[in-house]
Structures are given as structure tokens and as C-alpha cells.
Amino acid sequence: MAKKFIQAYKQTPRRKQIQKLGLYVLPVITLGTVFALYLVFSAQAASAGLEIRSYLDKKEELQRTVANENTQLAWLLSYSNMTKRAEKLGFSQISSLNIAYMVLPSYPGRTVKLTSPVPGSDSVGDVVLNSAYQESLLDFLGDFLFTTSSEEVEP
């Protein structure tokens, strides 16, 4: 009885229609899901790319700012400004006959240290975005299937 009931249930035309419809819709849903995921990751990649671009612009801006600040500092410390400040503070130049000299054996004398500009890099043309973000599905599948299998056969 139960067997007959199950058979009748499975052979219900409505049930069969739904099964067929499911078969047709399943690939559509699968494809839709894949495309949706693809879209999400693409959007993430684009957003990361644009963010990187803005950081690169910021870096250029900072380099300009550093150069500018160094020069502005030099304007403030220029000879004419420093002389005026020294005079204002009551300093005057001394004569050699009024100087007391002494030997300081360990004193190396006046030295200067300059901070050199940032060295350049050899990174011209390096892609900065993670390569996973730049692969198409075919690339990914190709890499996944063929690279993995070739790695496996390697001793």
C-alpha cells in the first residue's frame, strides 16, 4: 500500500513538471550564483584598485610635501634670517684675538650629516593587486586543474 502510495506520489504529473522545471532552472541558478560571486569579487577588486590608486597619489603628494617643507625650513633658516635673529638676541661676531683655543683630542671637529632623498625602486610595471583578483573563472579553473595536477606528478 505504502509502495503504491509512493509510486503514485512520484508519478503525479505536477511532481514531474516540477522536477523538469527544476532541471532547467538548476543550471540557470548555478550560473546566476557564479555570476553574482564573480560580480562581488570584481567589485571588490575594482574597489581595491581604486584605493591603491588613491594611495599612490597620496604618496606623490607626500613626496611633494616633504620637498616643500624642507625648502620652507631652509627659508626660515636662511643666512639673512639667522643673522637678524642673532643680532636681535644681542650676538655679535668675535675677533680671533678674543678667542681662547684649547686642545680637545677626542673632538672630531664639526661634522655634517645629510639625509639623502629616498632612493628609487625597480618596481616599474609591478602589478600591485593580488593576482587572484585578476583571474577570470577560466584562468582560475585552468590554474587549479592543470597546475595542481602538474605539481602532483612532480617528484
Binding site: S42, A45, A46, S47, A48, G49, L50, I52, R53, L56, K59, E60, Y79, T83, L114, S116, P117, V118, P119, G120, S121, S123, V124, G125, D126, V127, V128, L129, Y133, Q134
Partner: peptide, 27 residues
Amino acid sequence: DPYMIEETPILPSGASLVLTIDREIQA
């Protein structure tokens, strides 16, 4: 293309020069 974004080359600045000139003596 944001997917293809590459690192902008960090071009080294032109070389800097340290002169033998002494600013105070020159002035």
C-alpha cells in the same frame, strides 16, 4: 583599469650636490 593597477615607479630624485662653499664665509 583598476584590475590592472601597477605600482607607479618611484623615480629617484635627481642627484643632490654638497658644495665646498661655506655659506657663512660666502656671505
